[in-house]
Simulated scan of single mutants.
Amino acid sequence: MVTEKQIEQAVVREVKKMGGLAVKFVSPSLNGVPDRIILLPKCKIAFAEIKAPGKKMRPLQLKRKQTFENLGFHVYCIDNLEMIGGILHEIQST
């Protein structure tokens, strides 16, 4: 079984391969923010909440996701390795 840590490491690795950064996002003044800020070349930015397979976002995380999306940012919940390539392609294409 793949762990949340392995998924997060894979996200960081794949973003780096694309010439970007997947920065750990910690906000002491705002709980429930996504785990990573994904920065890709040509000013592409999105947020990712990383979860263990089958795990869902908590209510506060869903609230933050909605807030960020209302500001125009994309927020993805990644809970398996197979999702990573498609999500990164989507971020790069928008």
Rank of each mutant, 00 (worst) to 15 (best):
K56L: 13
G85M: 08
G32K: 03
L60N: 14
K44L: 02
K63E: 13
N70G: 10
L81R: 10
Q9I: 12
G20L: 08
P41M: 06
F73K: 06
P34F: 00
I87V: 15
A10Q: 14
K24D: 09
V75D: 00
P34Q: 00
V2Y: 12
I91A: 04
Q6F: 07
I37M: 13
K63W: 10
K65P: 04
P34D: 00
N80F: 05
P28H: 00
G32W: 00
R64K: 14
A10F: 03
F73S: 06
K56N: 13
E69N: 06
E49T: 10
V26C: 01
Q9V: 08
R58A: 15
Y76S: 07
R64W: 02
A48N: 04
K16R: 12
I38S: 03
L81G: 01
K17F: 09
G20C: 09
K65S: 05
P41T: 07
Q6G: 05
Q92E: 15
R36P: 00
Q66D: 11
E49I: 07
L40M: 10
L39T: 03
M18E: 11
D35I: 03
T94H: 14
G19V: 09
K56P: 00
R13S: 12
V33W: 02
L21E: 14
V12T: 12
E14R: 14
N31H: 04
G54P: 01
E82I: 09
V12P: 02
G19K: 05
I84Q: 08
Q61S: 08
K56T: 14
F47H: 05
R58E: 15
K5P: 01
Y76T: 10
V12C: 09
G20H: 07
L40H: 06
G54K: 01
A22W: 04
I38D: 05
L81H: 11
A22C: 06
M1E: 10
V23W: 10
G72P: 11
I84M: 07
V11I: 15
G85Y: 09
L81D: 04
G85D: 15
S27V: 10
L40F: 08
S93A: 13
I7Y: 10
G54L: 01
V12N: 02
M83E: 15
I91F: 07
M1C: 07
K63M: 13
L88T: 08
L71E: 12
S27R: 14
R13Y: 13
A52V: 02
S27H: 09
A22F: 04
F25R: 04
K63I: 13
K51T: 03
L71R: 13
I45E: 05
V33Q: 04
M18T: 06
